[in-house]
Structures are given as structure tokens and as C-alpha cells.
């Protein structure tokens, strides 16, 4: 029964990982650009969320809207600084720019807001559902899972039933063909980047709510989890979500068996195993393998 509790914890944590991974997968898989800065994008979302909560402690919906909008705007900046100019340059140039931006965001946040973590008040209290004697599902956990499900649902609608969503998907499959049929490639890719960053922002504030704290260096860990989830599940939206969910569950099981110091090791072990056995991930496709 203890393990069932861990699985429930794992699902809650896994859904946050899933959201971080989905945002990352949109940038890596759909926009098809490398990003080293997604973790710090999430961190920015968390900080914006933190200050919004201070300003509007009773209006959670407003907080989320603010975070989404702020991170959307951040996405425009990321695109301008790291991607726009380099659409036809070697990929490494974009990667290096995202590294530079990541370093900048981390350090300027530390300088501006201090290096201590900031505590987010517990918005939903410590209430929980109890099933039997041992199982507890906290309101926070339910909230997080609902937000993630809702977001992914909206995402599906956006990508598959709107014109801009179609453009983004078309560009992701074939840039030049899309240009030839009149799609504004730059706009579509910018939209995709903004979407990924905005989702990252939501993921960031959710992380803040789950751990009750935000910290300028939280991005690194969050990005690594997102990365592992995406590798584990595959560089596409369903894969990333599945990978994140499974990572959350495995991590919590690992903590149950071996102790909390081993949480991060679970992720690295999964990473190495997946890379050695099936690098394209659970739901990933083996695209043209040019052997070397």
C-alpha cells in the first residue's frame, strides 16, 4: 500500500515532468531547434508566478494567465536572440546562443533577486483526500494533474484544429515546402517557440507550487528532467508526456526503495539505459539512420 502511495506521488510529480517535457518537445521536435535555455525559461515562469501570487493571492487563474503571457513574451526574445538570425546557419550556432542566454538568465536572476530561494505560500492548504488509512491524495496533487491534463488538451486543439497550429506542424515536417505553399516560416517557428516557452512557464510555476519554493538555479534540474523525459519517451508530444509521467513514477519508486538521496540517480540511469538500447525513445521513430 505504501507503494501505491508512491505511485500516486509519482503520477503527480510525473505530470509536472510531463508538462516540462511537452514544452521542451515542442521546441526540440516541432520547431526543431536545439535549446539549452528551457530550464531557465521555466525558472523565469516560476519567478513571475511567485510575484504574481504575492500580488494576487486569491486569483490563481490570473496568476496562470500572467505567467503564460510573460513567458510567451520571453519566447519572442528567445527566438530573436537565438533562432531568428540563424535559421540557415549550422545548428551549433543556435545551441551556443541558447547556452549564452541560459548563463545570462541564471546569473542576472541571481544578481537581481538574490541567491536564496523564495517560498511560495501553500495556496490550497494541506488538505487531502484519504483512501483507507495510508493513501493520501493532496488537493495540490489533484490540482496539478488537472492543470496538466487541461493544458495538453488545449494544446491538441491548438495544434490540430487551428490554422496556425497547422502551419507550425507543416513547417516542422518540411520547411521549404511550407514556404512554397505560402506559410510564413519565421512566424510559424516563432509561434512554436513562444508556445513551448509559455508551457514551460506554466510548468515552472507548477514546480514552484509543488515544492513551495522558487530558486534562480532551479532551471538546471528541471531542464535535465525534461530532457530525460523527452529522451525516454520520444521527441514528440505524446512521447514526452509519457516519458515525464514514467520518470515521475520511477523516481518515486526509487526513492521508496533506496532513499531520497537517490532520486536524481534514477533519472541518469534511465538516460544511460535508453541511450544504449533505444535512443529514439519509447514512442520515438527511428528516422533515417545514417550509419557512421
Amino acid at each position: 500500500m505504501f507503494y501505491l502511495q508512491q505511485i500516486i506521488n509519482g503520477i503527480a510529480q510525473g505530470s509536472i515532468y510531463a508538462l516540462t517535457a511537452v514544452g521542451y518537445a515542442i521546441i526540440l521536435g516541432i520547431v526543431n531547434v536545439p535549446s539549452f535555455v528551457h530550464g531557465d525559461v521555466m525558472m523565469v515562469g516560476a519567478f513571475v508566478g511567485y510575484y504574481s501570487v504575492l500580488l494576487f493571492p486569491d486569483n490563481i487563474l490570473l496568476v496562470f494567465i500572467i505567467v503564460f503571457a510573460a513567458n510567451w513574451f520571453l519566447g519572442i526574445i528567445v527566438d530573436m536572440v537565438c533562432y531568428k538570425r540563424f535559421r540557415n546557419s549550422p545548428r551549433q550556432v543556435m545551441l551556443i546562443c541558447t547556452v549564452g542566454l541560459s548563463i545570462f538568465l541564471k546569473s542576472s536572476t541571481q544578481v537581481t533577486f538574490g541567491t536564496q530561494q523564495k517560498l511560495i505560500p501553500n495556496l490550497l492548504g494541506n488538505n487531502f483526500f484519504a483512501l483507507g488509512e495510508i493513501i493520501r491524495i493532496t488537493y495540490v496533487q489533484i490540482f496539478i494533474v488537472s492543470v496538466v491534463i487541461f493544458t495538453v488538451f488545449l494544446l491538441q486543439i491548438l495544434l490540430f484544429r487551428t490554422k496556425i497550429g497547422l502551419s507550425v506542424r507543416a513547417v516542422s515536417m518540411h520547411k521549404s515546402a511550407s514556404a512554397l505553399v505560402g506559410i510564413n516560416v519565421n512566424q510559424a517557428m516563432e509561434f512554436g517557440t513562444c508556445l513551448g516557452c509559455a508551457l514551460g512557464g506554466i510548468a515552472g510555476i507548477l514546480l514552484g507550487i509543488y515544492y513551495n519554493a522558487v530558486h534562480p538555479l532551479m532551471g538546471g534540474n528541471a531542464a535535465m528532467k525534461a530532457f530525460i523525459s523527452v529522451i525516454f519517451g520520444g521527441i514528440n508530444i505524446p512521447g514526452a508526456a509519457l516519458g515525464g509521467l514514467l520518470l515521475g513514477i520511477f523516481e518515486n519508486m526509487g526513492v521508496a526503495f533506496f532513499g531520497s538521496g537517490y532520486r536524481d540517480i534514477v533519472g541518469y540511469v534511465i538516460l544511460i539505459v535508453v541511450l544504449l538500447i533505444k535512443p529514439s525513445g519509447l514512442l520515438g521513430r527511428k528516422e533515417n539512420e545514417i550509419k557512421i
Partner: peptide, 20 residues
């Protein structure tokens, strides 16, 4: 140390944009 890193981050971006 953080100021140092801000400079480094910006330096990387400047180099990439002006003279990779």
C-alpha cells in the same frame, strides 16, 4: 561571481551575433 557570469553570457551572445 554572478556578475562574471552575466558578462560571459552576454559575451557569448555578442560573439555569436557579430563574429561567430
Amino acid at each position: 561571481a554572478q556578475y562574471r557570469l552575466i558578462v560571459f553570457g552576454v559575451a557569448i551572445l555578442i560573439v555569436m551575433h557579430l563574429r561567430p
